[in-house]
Amino acid sequence: MSLERTEEFDRGDWLEDKELSRVERGYLLTLMWLDKRLRLVDYLELLEDAYYKTNLQMPKSHTEQYNLDNKFWYWYPLYSLGSLSIIAYVLLAISGALLGFYYSPSATSAAGADATIAYNQIVFIQTDLNFGFMLRSIHRWAAQFMVAAVFLHMIRVYFTGAYKEPRELNWILGVVLILLTLLFGYSGYVLPWNQLAFWAAQIGLEMALSVPLIGEWAAQLLFGGFSPGAPTLMRMYILHVFVLPFVVTSLIAIHVGIVWMQGIAEPH
């Protein structure tokens, strides 16, 4: 018995049999040395797994099997509506972040002015800020395009029966997303605090108050009172730039993730 540690497995013979070149031998020894310390084999297995998953030979899709490629390309615009709404969403996030640098959700008037600070900031963005007019225009139009794309997307999904059996949950998620998109649009509509925004807030408030039982509570929660004012603007702002972006972004991620898992419902 010696103090020298013996190797658990003698790899010498095995290495001799291999008749490796100098480079190969050096590589293998390094690999063995690292493996003993870092358990590289485990990670290699993960890699191998990933490799086989990505290079999996998929069975022929419906379009391929029945040679529907021509039809698929003909209808393709309808099938890209979902991604178009995501593109518009990304555009909205970028332009919205830039607008957020200059906007201030304050419904109080500056000293000596009759318009509120929020409205004055919109005026500033549109008239004084370099590129500001275009920035607000992009944000507004991208919102219109996103809502339109989402509506058309839903219609496409309905008429191609893409909500059926394995995809019911994603349809429900989609309905939730379309409602949240509308809420997004509404809360953004209020932010400039101009005449239309104020009276839109008034109507929303009255709608909330009309709901039996929880009406007053909902009005307090969403609009911060029983008539539109500074708290309403602040709540709509927080909803628009803090709550909804997180919720909608994560729901979109889940929505797309489920599409990824289940595959696109093939056009027929």
Binding site: V123, M134, S137, F151, P192, W193, N194, L196, F198, A200
Partner: peptide, 26 residues
């Protein structure tokens, strides 16, 4: 958005109800 920028509306005025109140088209 370059050709049809949004107009600058009048500031909010709780004392006068405008003739037309509408949300966005959606």
């Amino acid at each position: 958005s370059a050709t049809m920028p949004p107009p600058l509306e009048a500031p909010a005025n709780p004392t006068s109800t405008p003739a037309v109140i509408l949300p966005d088209w959606y």
